[in-house]
């Protein structure tokens, strides 16, 4: 579904050259939920923006359903970390969810139905006429998720979507995402710095090295299909996987490009 090959991104400006991504190869299958983790400053967001077509790669390419991405492709939705800045403050919640559908020229009645379904799915059926700034942070991010879901994308990209909300809200939103993913089967790539979150959500965790970034580890998460905040997180296997990812990230920070010695085989 999503193929990233030899992706390289170099920033040039003011006499400074920064190689953010050295060469990323990664494939996401249809219907998969992949989490990308890495040490801070490793170019996670750069990777996501290249995949979303918001940044042009220096070399390599991204293909979505076989077509090269050279700008935001149709059929892709993005949820940003900064929910407060990604919702249109002059529009109501419903209008925010509806706007992309309008641009997609979805006919009116279908549009209304999609908006209502999406808002109901994130538990905001009654908040349609409110403005985003009247809602709490967690609720605003729900609106952004509803907007993405209503768009009926083939691929959903999420950039640290739950990093700016409190812990309880975060757990709720994680389960909301898992529920939506089970129901709709959208191919999802989620970038996060939180190892627990990555292991809890994903079927596959991709660990990035420190900048200049490469893929350091591609880990299959063999936890039971149905996740639960308490049961899954207290599963000994969860702790092992978590420790494994953590070891890789710590190694990536000190000695990029070399896998850590002495960690268990996944």
């Amino acid at each position: 579904m999503l193929e990233i090959t030899g992706l390289r991104k170099v920033y040039e400006g003011r006499g400074r050259v920064v190689e953010a991504l050295r060469g990323i190869d990664l494939t996401v299958e249809r219907g998969e939920l992949v989490c990308v983790v890495g040490p801070s400053g490793c170019g996670k967001t750069t990777l996501l923006k290249c995949v979303a077509g918001l940044l042009a790669p220096t070399a390599g390419q991204v293909r979505l359903a076989g077509r090269v991405v050279d700008g935001p492709p149709p059929g892709m939705a993005v949820v940003f970390q900064e929910y407060g800045r990604s919702l249109f403050p002059w529009l109501t919640v419903s209008q925010n969810v509806e706007l992309p559908l309008r641009e997609k020229r979805v006919p009116g009645p279908r549009r209304t139905a999609l908006v209502q379904q999406a808002l109901a799915a994130v538990g905001l059926a009654d908040a349609g006429s409110a403005h985003p700034w009247q809602l709490s942070g967690g609720m605003q991010q729900r609106v952004a998720i509803a907007r993405a879901v209503a768009y009926e994308p083939q691929v959903l990209l999420m950039d640290e979507p739950f990093a700016a909300v409190d812990a309880q809200t975060r757990a709720d939103l994680e389960d909301l995402l898992l529920g939506l993913w089970h129901r709709l089967g959208i191919t999802t790539m989620l970038v996060t710095h939180d190892i627990d979150e990555a292991v809890y959500l994903a079927r596959r965790v991709v660990v990035l090295s420190a900048a200049p970034t490469v893929v350091q580890e591609d880990l299959h998460v063999d936890l039971p299909h149905d996740r639960d905040q308490i049961i899954t997180r207290s599963d000994p296997r969860f702790a092992e996987l978590r420790a494994h990812v953590y070891g890789h990230i710590r190694a990536a920070k000190t000695d990029p490009g070399r896998p850590p010695a002495g960690t268990m085989k996944a």
């Binding site: 918001l54 700008g71 935001p72 939705a77 249109f88 706007l99 641009e103 997609k104």
Partner: peptide, 28 residues
């Protein structure tokens, strides 16, 4: 706002629609 601008791009707001629904309200 950059994030808002990226959001609009991702959801296909271009040309006149981008002007009417993003740029002018944001600058208002």
């Amino acid at each position: 706002d950059e994030v808002l601008s990226d959001t609009a791009r991702v959801y296909g707001l271009r040309g006149p629609a981008r002007l009417r629904r993003l740029v002018l309200p944001a600058a208002s």
